[in-house]
Each structure stands twice: as structure tokens, then as C-alpha cells.
Design a protein around this nucleic acid. Sequence first.
DNA 1: CTAATAACAGTAATCGTTACTATTATTCAA
DNA 2: TTGAATAATAGTAACGATTACTGTTATTAG
Lengths: 135, 135
Amino acid sequence: MSKYSRQREMILDALTGNRCHPTADWVYNHLKPDNPALSMGTVYRNLNFLVERGLVRKLSVPGEADRFDGQADTHMHFRCRQCGSLIDLKGEAAEEILDFARRFRDLTGLEMDPAGLVLEGRCEACSGDSPGNCS
Amino acid sequence: MSKYSRQREMILDALTGNRCHPTADWVYNHLKPDNPALSMGTVYRNLNFLVERGLVRKLSVPGEADRFDGQADTHMHFRCRQCGSLIDLKGEAAEEILDFARRFRDLTGLEMDPAGLVLEGRCEACSGDSPGNCS
DNA sequence: CTAATAACAGTAATCGTTACTATTATTCAA
DNA sequence: TTGAATAATAGTAACGATTACTGTTATTAG
């Protein structure tokens, strides 16, 4: 059904060996120098392929390009509207969200999917009095 | 600073007198028949203006056009990934989210903004065994 | 009434993403 | 090992949502 390709492997590697949450554009520019023939279509096609296979998570950020996460463990994200940083929510924070999801389901009958969840607000650094402390 | 315009008033009215969550395109097509000169730029400019003024809420849905909500009371939303419906979360469900936001802040120091929140998952109708029950 | 300017309509441009097409690479069975 | 079948590619064109630009119209304040 699906065939091996060097490009797909490189694209996956670029995500798994990376703690940030790259955009398709970042992946493209990251791999382009060593692979001058790489095309943007290939990057998008493979990212979507990997998302479908569950190897990669897609994170939607309003008004910006989608971000992709190659971390295997289930976790959620928080985005600061002020400084734009995307923060991983693991451990206790992740548990808190899962607890909420259960209570929310029992109350409303709505089965929310915590995977791919991106909460939005203001991070600790940006909540301080001093403005501009979050370049 | 800002001047009155008939178009802005109409656009606001189209949202407040409406329980669904229209897109810019919907607003445009809704008003166009009675206002043949209306332009899309005017719709977007005014929607963004109203959002900045806090009279209207913008709801981002991954991969789709933004939706706008003219309901005055603070509430959140749930989107079913299967049938696409956008459900208002008020009363108990809204309280549950606000409770969660407080606990989450205390735990992580992250100040999430419940306004504009769109949780994603599967609605009750789509969670049933029978497939296709949610046209 | 008039000058200043916010808002407009119409159109072009932008951005992220997907679709198309001809070519290349992988696979699997003879 | 060869070769047909076809997945995946590179390159480019198209797409949809949104914003930016430009010359004109409408509102406002003196």
C-alpha cells in the first residue's frame, strides 16, 4: 500500500529529533540545504501522511501555519497569545486536563479529544507587571 | 476616532440576531441582496473591528473559515469533528470549564483564556454505534 | 458649510495549503 | 534479475480565507 521513501524518513526524523513544534515551512527549510530537490508538496504530503498514521500530531494555531509534533507520548499544549510560545503540558498538567475531560463528558455527553488540544492564554512570564519581558 | 456606518450596524445586527455562528462569507451573502454594493473587505474590516471592541467573539476552527459569535454572555464552544456542529457551552458546562481554568492556573501558572475556547471532539449523537447518524 | 478623515467598494496581493502532471523510485512476482 | 505495477516525487499551478491598497463617499466637528 505505502512505499518507503527517503524524504518521508527525513521528515519524520526532523520532527522526532526535535523538541520544538515546527511548521511545514521550517521542516522544508531545515532539510532543503542537504536535499536541494525537496519540494514543499512532499513535506505537506508526508506530514499529513504521518499524522494519519498517528506518528505525528498536528497542532492548529489560529491565524498561523499549523505546527507538527513528533513526540510519541500523549500530551497537550498551551499557547501564549502574547509571546507566541507553545508550551508542552505533561505530567500533572496533562492529568488535570484528562480529569477535566472525564467530568466534562459525564456532565455534557460530549467526548472531547485531549490529543491535539491547544489551550490559549498568557504564560507566566507574560503575566508579570513588566511589559515586554517576553521578547 | 471611529465613525458611524450603516454597514457596520447591519453586520453587528446580523450577528446578534442570530443563534448560529456565521462565517464572514455567510454575513456577506446574508446582507448582499439588500445591499448590492457591500464588499467583502467591509465585512472583514467590521468583524475585526467589532471583535477588538469586544462586541463580537471570533472562533477559530482548524481548516475552516473563522466563525463569529454575537452573543453577549460569556460562553465557550464545542465542535464535533465528525458532524462539524458547533455547540454553545453555557451554565454548568461553562462553570466546569471556569473551575478547570482556575485549577490549571494554580497548578501551572498559565492563565488560560476561556473566552474564544473551542473544545474539539465527538458530540453525543456521533458517539453512538450507528454510523452516519449525524448527516 | 466646509475641511478633515473614517469608512467604503473594488480589486489586487498574500499566505498556507492542496491539486495536478509528468517523471522517478520502490516493490513484488515471474 | 528483470520488469510491470504503482507509490512517491519535484515542480508548478490553483485554491480559499483573509488582508492590503487605491481612489471615492460619507460622517463628523469646528
